[in-house]
């Protein structure tokens, strides 16, 4: 039963992935007036553009082009980035660990802050805390991350001088040996405490900026889910047994309310990825977001489309995994 469910979801995932690649093909080859010019870059000569058109087979029919495009994708060929002169997939591989480290730090921080606020807001509904919490969570989704980053830089670096201006490590600090690609984890594993603290110090502002919107989402969902659970009969039974309110909240309600909240983590990956575009480019965090933002500015076409494709793939896989995990935990969902 479970195997069948997982298989069905995986087949669905495969179909969506094929569709994503088709969509990127349309964006990359069909929508632009002159894809060869876009791929070659704004500074390429006319001859170079013509040569590229020939080489990429952009003169052929759309079907021929699609077959060639998909053939390339299956071999991991996302084209060359004309700003870094490297294959786009290679670039993404280089920049990915920085983004993964930042995103995970932001996610962890959002959970640590967002969940307790959501629980307290729901447990003491319509109290002053609830009002402030709800207002702050709306404010959280309303704050432009790029502005928060600029203000954070102004206050943390220029006014108070307690935070670094950007980057992953201070100048002169050597990166730790590459194990996971996460500077904090790698320095910890190799016992380089100085590097660890330096990496952590650099992580504070970007992770804080990136977590803003996500904290707000967690507060809202945790609060709504807690309110839903608190209406259930088993909570009433627990209260009737004479358990104190805080025990009922902490031991009975929170655990059950956690399930729907945890499943939306998958959806937050999309929000975090969109946010990392902006956060990384302002705080000079050398990840995929900064790479993508630079590619957009330089009109580096292959890099832009490569990041789009990889981003959508990761997002889709994350959601499918959460979906499968949820189905395993809750058998009622397997039928749908």
């Amino acid at each position: 039963m479970i195997a069948q469910f997982i298989l069905r979801r995986l087949l669905g995932l495969l179909a969506v992935l094929v569709a994503i690649s088709a969509m990127t093909f349309v964006l990359a080859r069909v929508v632009p007036k002159d894809p060869a010019r876009l791929i070659a870059g704004p500074r390429a000569s006319q001859q170079a553009v013509e040569a590229l058109r020939e080489r990429l087979g952009l003169n052929g029919t759309l079907v021929e082009q699609y077959v060639r495009y998909m053939g390339g994708l299956l071999q991991g060929d996302l084209g060359m980035s004309f700003s870094t002169k490297r294959p786009v997939l290679e670039d993404i591989r280089i920049f990915f660990p920085a983004t993964a480290e930042l995103t995970l730090a932001a996610l962890l921080f959002s959970l640590l802050v967002g969940l307790p606020i959501g629980v307290i807001s729901a447990a003491w509904k319509d109290s002053a805390f609830d009002y402030v919490g709800r207002f702050l969570s709306t404010l959280g989704v309303s704050l432009p991350p790029f502005w928060v980053a600029l203000v954070g830089q102004l206050v943390g670096y220029y006014f108070l001088s307690v935070l670094p201006v950007g980057g992953r490590l201070s100048q002169g600090v050597a990166p730790p040996p590459n194990i996971t690609g996460f500077y904090t984890l790698d320095s910890l594993l190799t016992g380089q405490w100085g590097t660890f603290l330096n990496a952590l110090w650099h992580l504070v502002l970007p992770a804080f900026v990136l977590s803003f919107g996500v904290i707000a989402v967690f507060v809202r969902i945790m609060r709504a889910s807690m309110l839903d659970v608190m209406r259930q009969d088993y909570i009433r039974v627990a209260r009737a047994k004479g358990l104190t309110y805080s025990v009922v909240v902490l031991r009975h309600a929170v655990r059950n309310a956690m399930i729907p909240t945890l499943t939306v983590i998958g959806l937050q990956v999309g929000l975090l990825m969109s946010g990392s575009f902006l956060t990384e480019s302002i705080l000079q965090w050398p990840g995929v977001g900064l790479y993508a933002a630079n590619a957009l500015l330089a009109a580096d076409y292959n890099a832009t489309m490569g990041v789009t494709l990889v981003g959508a793939t990761i997002y889709t896989i994350a959601n499918a995994l959460v979906d499968i995990a949820y189905g395993i935990v809750d058998p009622r969902l397997r039928a749908t």
Partner: peptide, 9 residues
């Protein structure tokens, strides 16, 4: 299936 800002850009 695409994150909003990434698709829009």
């Amino acid at each position: 299936a695409f994150p909003a800002l990434i698709l829009a850009s």
